[in-house]
Amino acid sequence: MSNSEFFIGRQPIMNRESKLYGYELLFRGGFDPNEAVFDSGQEATAAVIHNSMMGLGLESIVGQHQAFINFPESFFLSTETPCFSPDNIVVEVLEDVPPTEDVIEGIKVLKGQGYIIALDDFVFKKRLVPLIQLADIIKFDVQYVKPENIPALFTKVKQITNVKIIAERVETKEMFEVCKQAGADYFQGYFFAKPEVISGKQLNVGRHNLILLLEKISDDNLHIDQLIEIVERDVGLTHKLMKMAEQYRSLSMPEFSSLRDVMMLFGLKRVQSWATLVSMSILDDIVPEVFNLARTRAVFMRSLAQHEGHGAVDSYYLAGLFSMLDVILQQEMEDALKQLPINEEIKFGICKGENSYGQLLAIAKQFESASDHGINTDHVKLYMKALSEVNEVRF
């Protein structure tokens, strides 16, 4: 299969006026909104980030609202820079994460980088005071708490720090009113909405390329050009990196025209984190010939652009690589490209074929149709060279 279906659950979090504040994003392996079977919290978190940010795109799922994502202990012990932006992300510390010195230090680093910290399913214990002092938000599961005990519970933590409180599992109007009167700032539960499951299609990644990438990111002498060389071979890896970059790109930044643009924005440390996350959330895939055809177009169009004296030749590679997204994702091309933060000229060339990107793409397609009408001999040499290069490095 050239692409696979993914699922992600989301449940709204409302403010005191019953208006949307954010969504908790949940691991789901299918359409059942209440079923989540996974081997480890680390893998579940990786899947949620992968599916939300590199699948549909975070904005499509939460808009401009906050995205609450559960993180296990290992995340707070990692020295890697997170590959996702702190914008719109709330880092939920799972209830079984112990308040060790290393965990506390990891949370301090994240707060320094701008991440909002929430404590999930919180139960008050004296040893958790260091976590309370660092938290921006605390989530209380109120389902099994007696209504008369809730005000004292909320007051107790607010005496320690000026923290926001989310009342979780609010199932009835009566419980909503009790929690609201007790000082809760936000609310989550069946009274507002049950979790819903969103699904989509995502591009698979060639296992060989992923292994090469993981080998490179462990190299202390790694150079960004080495990463570009590996990522650009694979439509799936390139697409996922572009989708992740969408979350980082501010409105004042120009749209990307090449992988180098994205890599320079991310920096090596975030790219290393991104590659690790992708490896945790992707299964082995069989990649069909359509991926090799897209890569051949990319190599050929870059060579042809250089031959004809066009500038920014890497942008032609990107155009070729994404020129078959409609086939791979089984979408209209405009929809497939819509949420990618790439140059509008590239998108226009792929969709309309009326600028230099479209013209060079048309030449590539001429070879694919086995038409020899008016084919330039120099173009033949370049295309045969592109075929040879792609066949040397199979997915």
Rank of each mutant, 00 (worst) to 15 (best):
S4P: 03
I166M: 13
F395Q: 01
C179K: 01
S199A: 09
I346S: 06
E95F: 04
Q202A: 09
A118L: 02
A305N: 08
D219M: 02
Q330R: 15
S4I: 11
V93K: 03
T276A: 06
S218H: 12
G63K: 01
A184G: 05
K381W: 05
T296F: 01
I346W: 06
L119A: 03
P254A: 03
V123Y: 02
V271R: 00
Q306D: 13
S369M: 14
E168M: 08
C83D: 02
F122L: 05
V278M: 05
L203E: 00
Y383I: 00
M253H: 12
S279A: 13
K365L: 10
T377L: 11
A305H: 06
S60I: 00
S252W: 09
I282D: 03
Q366W: 04
E334Q: 15
Q331R: 14
L26K: 14
V235A: 09
Q11C: 04
K19G: 10
I346N: 07
I49G: 01
C351P: 00
D261Q: 05
A386E: 00
K164E: 15
T79H: 04
T45S: 15
Y190T: 14
Y357F: 09
K194E: 15
S250H: 11
I342K: 01
Q202K: 08
D326E: 14
I150L: 10
E289V: 10
I69H: 01
I61Y: 00
L25G: 14
L387S: 00
Y115T: 09
D141N: 13
E148S: 14
F7G: 09
E232A: 02
T155P: 01
R297F: 07
K194N: 15
Q11L: 04
L56E: 05
S2R: 10
Y21C: 11
I13K: 02
R394D: 00
S369G: 14
S18G: 03
A47E: 08
K240P: 01
L268I: 12
E92D: 10
G320P: 10
R10F: 00
I138C: 08
K347I: 09
L227P: 03
